[in-house]
Design a protein around this nucleic acid. Structure first.
Length: 419
DNA sequence: TCTGGGGTCCTAGGACCC
DNA sequence: TCTGGGGTCCTAGGACCC
């Protein structure tokens, strides 16, 4: 038995947690730059706000219905996510944290008759300890647990649901495109073949599916039929780390784009070092605003192999700037830049280049310096100390006009309670 | 005016090996 | 006249997820 615990409207629930005045009110959370809607409360969904809708297109609707909009506040969501996950992990040992707002539980150790009540108790505990409402789907495979969770939210509107009891009848109610692992392209192809529901897929010959699509599709169909094709997955070290952002306003100068690339290097290296990894490849890219058909378009990226695997922000920034110099062309209105660190490997031991190996002394110095960077920035906040390459005024920085306070991670933002 | 960011896995095809 | 069998590694592109 597997359970999938999924936080309801997670970002919206986080925002509402410290704003009791917004309980039962429609709210939406926006992507970076206050661009698109990426989370909606049930009230906002009921008013017809679609997922991914550009904010500027629904501004009138928001005004009309007093929909409260927030810029995204990932520090807050990350912190509340950790609270939810640690509550779950204290209650049950076999947990896979699947995303910021979801966790799978392997409940094989639990007697079958206790599964449903255990999940209900846990759901209540999470709500009590963190204030975040969740839905729990239960099934004999992870895909079925996902389906059960979907039914919880979309069909039955209850906190816990076990799909094992009337699997076939329930699968007939789920469109094939709503199955975990079946996206837009595949669902189009399946429908064209007369496979419309999760049930249809579950009774399609698995080997035929593998031949015509891929092993992924085969596994999904088998899981729907109740044959588990995978258990909980251990957290693996990252294979790549990306940092990129649209600019608040389009940029034309090399200096500004270069400074933003340097900031991305700092952010990516920070993540890299937290995970004790080093990068062997570096990808740098820029592009213009694809929605501005009236402006000339340009989209370019470049990838290089780093001679020695590294986590030194100075080296990575130097190379990233060299890459940028090769792809940057004047005369364009740039909208976005970013970098990606790839081919990540553990820091120790790492294979160095035979002919250009840095001395042990140089490596130790780097480590000492980077350690000081990390310590200062952890203590006083990101980019308290940084390379001059990042610049200071940051004219490209993103818009976040509607951001809520860092209620749980900054002393000055702690909510005040009057008794 | 305005349209997100960050990941993973799989497959096919080409190049290479013995 | 006839032209093997069994592999690995790498990359690009496409699909998916949150």
């Amino acid at each position: 038995m597997f359970a999938l615990i999924d936080c309801n409207n997670f970002y919206a629930s986080c925002e509402r947690l410290f704003r009791p005045d917004l309980r039962d009110k429609p709210i939406v959370v926006l992507s970076n730059n206050d661009g698109c809607v990426i989370a909606r409360s049930n009230e906002a969904k009921a008013l017809g706000v679609a997922m991914g809708e550009p904010f500027f297109k629904i501004k009138a609707l928001c005004k009309q219905h007093k929909i409260h909009a927030f810029s995204s506040n990932y520090t807050l969501y990350g912190d509340l996510s950790q609270r939810v996950m640690s509550t779950i992990e204290r209650a049950w040992p076999n947990v896979e944290v699947y995303s910021i707002d979801e966790a799978f539980l392997d409940l094989s150790e639990l007697p079958l008759e206790l599964v449903d009540s255990f999940c209900l108790t846990l759901q209540k505990l999470i709500l009590k300890e963190t204030g975040i409402p969740t839905s729990v789907g239960i099934g004999t495979t992870k895909t079925l647990a996902k389906i059960a969770n979907y039914l919880c939210k979309k069909v039955f509107k209850i906190p816990v649901f076990n799909v094992a009891h009337q699997r076939e009848a329930l699968l007939k109610q789920v469109a094939v495109g709503d199955v975990w692992g079946i996206g837009r392209q595949w669902s189009k192809k399946l429908m064209a073949r007369g496979i419309h529901t999760a049930y249809d897929l579950s009774i399609t010959n698995a080997h035929l599916l593998k031949k015509q699509y891929s092993v992924v599709m085969m596994r999904t169909a088998m899981e729907l039929a109740g044959i588990a094709c995978g258990g909980l997955v251990e957290a693996e070290p990252k294979q790549s780390i990306m940092s990129s952002k649209s600019f608040g306003e389009m940029q034309t100068s090399y200096t500004c784009v270069s400074q933003s690339v340097s900031s991305h290097c700092a952010r990516a290296v920070e993540k890299l070092r937290q995970q004790h990894l080093v990068a062997q490849r570096l990808y740098v890219f820029v592009h213009t605003n694809r929605f501005r058909e009236d402006l000339a378009q340009y989209c370019q990226g470049i990838e290089i192999k780093l001679i020695n695997p590294t986590d030194d922000v100075r080296l990575i920034t130097t190379w990233a700037k060299r890459c940028l110099r090769r792809i940057f062309k004047t005369g364009y209105h740039y909208k976005k830049a970013g970098i990606c660190l790839e081919d990540l490997i553990p820091k120790d031991p790492r294979q160095m280049d035979m002919f250009h190996q840095p001395s042990d002394e140089a490596l130790a110095k780097t480590e000492q310096l980077m350690g000081v960077f990390d310590t200062i920035n952890q203590k006083f906040g990101r980019s308290t100390i940084r390379l001059a390459a990042e610049g200071h005024s940051k004219p490209w920085d993103m818009r976040r006009q509607l951001k809520s306070p860092a209620y749980t991670t900054r002393w000055s933002d702690l909510p005040r309670v009057r008794l």
